[in-house]
């Protein structure tokens, strides 16, 4: 028994050291950021034209003034609102579709060719047509985000269902568990890790596509602000918004990652005999 407990301990929590490792990660992060800022500063000084490349100090200053004026908040809010709409829509349709495609050969044969055809076409390619049909406004960026998020979500859900260990389904069958209960209590949780991967990839794709859509086809949002300040030749503000696009994308991914470890703790362990 003691031997078994020992092996159990070894496999349980690989990240035991909490606080010191968090601090050192932070330090590494700051160090690489510092080097980056230094190169940037040198580059700005070398070029000597604040419209082409302003110094990091100017960008930080303009970032603070944009935050103070409330422009950051309003543009970020409209972008995030579109993200929420487009992403939620893609998840609500993509996950059930992926599940059904994974379980029904007929539906798979019917839908898969269409998906494979559309998938390599970037959302950006639809923007001109989208502007034509939907016009400039809320709908276009939301629709483009939906499109961007949809395919990774469907495909990863499908992969998840397809790769459910047949043994687990058999194990439920021999316990006398019926089909619908197996789908709900075996297939769905077993494909959850893949579904979450799909959500993360989808969120990333949606965010990328959104900026492109907002550059052209929206009256507000982070992408719109980038384009707006470019026309005014206010490069520090352009860069401030570009930085914010990166920051929000990063934070959203961080959030989904946290969700991933919180609801599928078993999926992070290397797959051995379970």
């Amino acid at each position: 028994m003691s031997l078994e407990e020992k092996t159990a301990d070894r496999t349980s929590s690989p990240r035991a050291s909490g606080v010191p490792s968090a601090v050192s990660t932070m330090l590494i992060y700051l160090r690489s950021m510092g080097i980056f800022a230094l190169i940037w500063y040198a580059g700005a000084w070398w070029i000597g034209n604040p419209v082409l490349l302003p110094s990091p100090v100017a960008v930080v200053q303009s970032l603070f003034s944009l935050i103070a004026s409330g422009e950051v908040a309003s543009n970020a809010a409209s972008s995030l609102q579109r993200l929420a709409m487009g992403f939620a829509g893609a998840a609500l349709i993509g996950i059930p579709l992926g599940l059904l495609m994974g379980m029904s050969r007929i539906l798979y044969a019917l839908v898969d060719p269409l998906i494979e055809l559309l998938r390599p076409i970037s959302g950006i390619a639809w923007i001109p047509l989208g502007m034509f049909i939907l016009g400039v406004g809320e709908t276009l960026p939301t629709a483009i985000m939906f499109y961007g998020a949809f395919f990774p979500i469907v495909i990863n859900t499908l992969i998840g269902v397809r790769s459910v260990d047949e043994r687990l389904i058999q194990a439920a069958k021999v316990l006398g568990v019926g089909r619908s209960s197996i789908i709900l209590n075996v297939v769905l949780p077993a494909s959850l890790p893949n579904i979450l991967v799909g959500l993360r990839l989808g969120a990333g794709a949606a965010w990328t596509a959104m900026v492109a859509a907002e550059l052209i086809g929206a009256p507000s949002g982070l992408g719109f602000a980038v384009e707006w300040y470019r026309e005014l030749l206010m490069t520090p503000s352009v860069l401030a918004f570009v930085f914010l696009i990166g920051l929000f994308g990063y934070l959203f991914d961080k959030l989904l990652r946290a969700l991933q470890t919180a609801i599928t703790p078993w999926a992070n362990i290397s797959r051995e005999v379970i």
Binding site: Q170, A171, A172, V273
Partner: peptide, 27 residues
């Protein structure tokens, strides 16, 4: 009842939840 060679335990369920799977979800 079957005991499989590779156990086929449900990895998202605890020991208790695995053991109660049959009595809980069987038809």
């Amino acid at each position: 009842g079957v005991v499989f060679q590779d156990y086929a335990l449900f990895p998202w369920k605890t020991v208790r939840e695995n053991i109660e799977f049959g009595p809980r979800f069987r038809d």
